[in-house]
Amino acid sequence: MPIVVVILGVIIIIMGVAFFLIPRPADEAALPPPVATEENNRTETMEIAEEQTVETEPLPSITPGTITLQENVTYLTPARTEHQLAVTMTVDNNNIVTDVNVVYDETNGFSNGHQERFDGLYKAEVIGKPLSEISLSRVGGASLTTDAFNEAVRNMLEPQVN
């Protein structure tokens, strides 16, 4: 009988040690809060339009998975209003942009309705591939002109050149 008591006591002690040593979900929740970053400062009212800066040249060699490009960009709308953008881009191992963050006009708000419409995120790879790799059936653009139009333009230009 004493032996049984001793054994039970050892078991209880072991369970108690285990109880205190094995992390519980509550412990994980007690981890320090994330450091505030520009990404984490987004709020419900701060709807940011994602914009991609289109590169037609290969991106420089960079460390993957890090924010490597930070640019201030001026863009014009077709209505010729001018706006400032601060763009940060994250690039992966293959020099593909995987994340883009844009702040308009150095404020948390928006300077015109054109920007206010961009709720949600628009993220896309920046691609600068030549069309020769793509079937022309998949190319979307302003009307491709036929040879007739191009020839007419050439014929018109020739007297001016001469």
């Binding site: 991609q52 037609t56 691609i127 600068g128 030549p130 069309l131 020769s132 653009g141 302003a142």
Partner: peptide, 13 residues
């Protein structure tokens, strides 16, 4: 693929 308006044989997105 969205064709670049000015650069021949290039797409932007």
């Amino acid at each position: 693929y969205l064709e670049h308006p000015t650069l021949p044989n290039t797409y932007i997105a």
